[in-house]
Write a protein that binds this DNA or RNA. Structure first.
Lengths: 111, 111
DNA sequence: CCGATACTGAAGTAATTACTTCACTATTGT
DNA sequence: ACAATAGTGAAGTAATTACTTCAGTATCGG
């Protein structure tokens, strides 16, 4: 379920918005309430809650409500799987280049 | 210019679409022409070209036209910087957890 | 030169997104 | 009890997105 393409879709979609990345950035420095997340952002609380719902639906952020404050924290596993998707593709490309380099070096030797 | 926030924005935006990720995936296995990229996708060539333009504007893909075929290839540096953004946030969170763990362990010792 | 191939570009459209405001429901502190 | 705080939910709207079709333009192969 970690590399579920639908989940990956939601995660990259979630990361596509600068406000949401700013929220993730804030959360990477520790848990925060909704208002704390909202504070540096030039938009209504309501808008922030909507962004937060996107982040939560993507699995990148987990939240928990105690009394009237909702505390948000990062889900590192989810970040890891987005990271992993990119990494796999990049490595595939780079391995390919290496093999190509080897091949060219070999055929050069043979001349 | 590699960690330019505007560029990062374009990259995550580009990766947010499943068709575009499929194109990146294909390119990770080697260069391809526009038609080759289009072949597995259930959409018009025109739509593929539009996606390709998004990918190119984001810096994730570089293309080069020879004669009538446009050859597309991945730009690993760009992939690396998206990867890096995620990685930094995840590590910040995990280091924080470690320090918290150390702190809790220490205060336990002191009781 | 001529038909097929490989795109390219413009226009239009339906769906989605990123907000807004406003009205509302808990909780908490005094 | 009451005011302030913290967040929720529903509309509404403007902009953007992901396509479509159609009408091109080069280039290539014979």
């Amino acid at each position: 379920m970690l590399h579920d393409p639908a989940q990956l879709d939601l995660m990259f979609q979630a990361l596509a918005d600068p406000a949401r990345r700013q929220m993730v950035d804030r959360l990477s420095r520790g848990p925060a309430s909704v208002s704390q997340l909202a504070e540096p952002l030039a938009m209504s609380l309501s808008a922030v809650v909507q962004h937060l719902n996107v982040l939560e639906a993507s699995g990148l952020v987990r939240t928990e409500k105690l009394g009237r404050v909702r505390t948000c924290r990062i889900e590192p596993q989810a970040l890891r799987s987005a990271e992993h998707w990119i990494n796999e593709r990049r490595l595939a490309w780079e391995r390919r280049l290496d093999r190509l380099g080897d091949f060219l070096a070999e055929t050069k030797d043979e001349t």
